[in-house]
Amino acid sequence: MAHAADSSPVLRQAARPQSSAPKEPRVGFEGRMMTPGLILLAALSIVPFLALIAMSFSRVLLLGGVRLEVIGITNWVRFFTDADMWMSWLRTIIYFVLTVGLEMALGVGIALCLYRVLRGRNILLSLLLLPMFAAPVIVGLLGRYLTDSTFGLYAWVLRSLGYTGDILGSPVSAFAAVVLMDVWEWTPLIALITLAGLSSVPQSVREAAAVDGAPAWMTLRYIIFPAIANVLLVALLIRSMDAIRYFDIIWVTTNGGPADATKIVPIRLYETAFRFFDLGYAAAIGLAMLAFSIFIARTFVRLLDTRGLTR
């Protein structure tokens, strides 16, 4: 089974000599170590997954005990013909591209700046990382406070610059606001990961470029970025997975409004499931979201497998 010991992060240890392995039953010590965790994980993931599939083909009755009434593909037909749903997917994609794109650009920018700071880099980084640990729901509520049209600090700043609209009240500015709140919270993550990647670029490589007289942007383009491409890809994937996981900020600021402008798919799912209690249809939406995230996870794992990354 030596072929299994290749470059995935969990596989990367040196192969243990066969001789040192004591005679053990089929499952082995490793298997026994994994058992409790994996059983619980199976109960928490496979059971809900099967339930989700079953629900997507049923009408779910909650009153008088939970019951599933099989109705075939009705939920799925609705899913594929619901015009509002397609708008939500479109909005989700725009939201996704904007948040993740801005976070990548700003995060890499901050990391490049931080990398040039020699003294006090640690304290600067620590301060810049703070938003990452804030609960998204608090970020949303704080954003609401800051953008309130009568007493919000940022609304006041914008007012003195000549903008008087209600930020969360009109579709475009509300969308921009929830994007920026997400950017505020998660840009530090990208900066942190990128900085780790930058620090791993050997100094000799940079020095060589410097001695050869390469201008800064060329060093960046041809030396630095290729060297940290893998790390950037990891940052992008990690962020992408979480970008579709969290929707708390939108939930407590605009709740999908105004006029559905910020109603991304998870918001619609929550509304469907827990406001209208149409759990069957919500299950269909959930499965579609799951397919998307599994695709990203697949890419992530394949990336770890095929490239050595930094470890």
Binding site: S8, V10, L11, L41, L44, S45, V47, P48, F49, A51, L52, M55, V60, V66, M241, I244, R245, Y246, F247, V265, P266, L269, Y270, A273, F274, L279, A282, A283, I285, G286, L287, M289, L290, F292, S293, I294, I296, A297, R298, F300, V301
Partner: peptide
């Protein structure tokens, strides 16, 4: 390993619905 990581990445909204039931 893939199964484990994919459960971490599953959208909360997709997990909440069956768990609620």
């Amino acid at each position: 390993a893939f199964w484990i990581i994919s459960t971490r990445m599953a959208p909360i909204a997709a997990v909440v619905v069956p768990l609620f039931l």
